[in-house]
Amino acid sequence: MIQINDLHKSFGDKVVLRGVDLEVYDGERLVIVGRSGCGKSVLLKHIINLMEPDKGYILVDNIAIRRVGQSDLFFLRKQFGFLFQGAALFDSMSVSENIALPLVEHTNLTSAEIAKKVAEKLEMVGLPGIEELRPSELSGGMKKRVGLARAIIMDPKYILYDEPTTGLDPIMAANIDKLIIELSEKLKVTSIVVTHDMQSVAKVATRVVMLHLGKIIFSGSVDELYNTENKVVAQFVKAEAEGPIQPKPIKY
């Protein structure tokens, strides 16, 4: 279980998070929605301490992630898989080297065992046999799936997805959504998905929260999301130009 308490974060004068309180329960697929630039990715990065909050704290399985030393932090991070928005594959490595890196660094598996696990995960994400390709030879959707294979190679307990379907065609996006659900069900992982793709939300989420002006303003099921009376949430869900959210970029 992950508990986020009173999280604040600013970048210079720009306040991004203004006291976020959120609990993520084991086994759920929590989707965080919100406008572009509202701090969804920043919140996600705080969970594995890639960013440090100005105020507030995060507990992962009752351990304060910010308070632990480096070796304990790395131990906690091994329980997470993180799919980055641009996949963040290492340019200098092949697909198999990218996926195998955590195994090479953190386990004593033999090369044959590592190759077998890499092939298994590539099969799982629907890309068998591309081990020797370089990231520059992959399409956007393939990169995301390779990124996902790398994120799940250590069989994590939690998977964090940063806009997994952004920039993909609808069919590829549907495939990624299907993968998220399959991984959640097969591997029994807890998933946190940051997105503003409402089709994806409807398919993937077991619970949705909305981040707006640095705070969580909604938490509920997909049905509750679509039937909410909160005007801000309703405008976002229905993708309407008129409403309490101004179409121009928000000045925090």
Partner: peptide, 22 residues
């Protein structure tokens, strides 16, 4: 620098690998 701006350094950290060591 390229690794930093393309989140590859964050990716290393998320895989529990310290970029200072690696």
């Amino acid at each position: 620098g390229t690794m930093k701006v393309t989140e590859q350094l964050d990716a290393l950290e998320s895989l529990a690998i310290d970029p200072l060591r690696y």
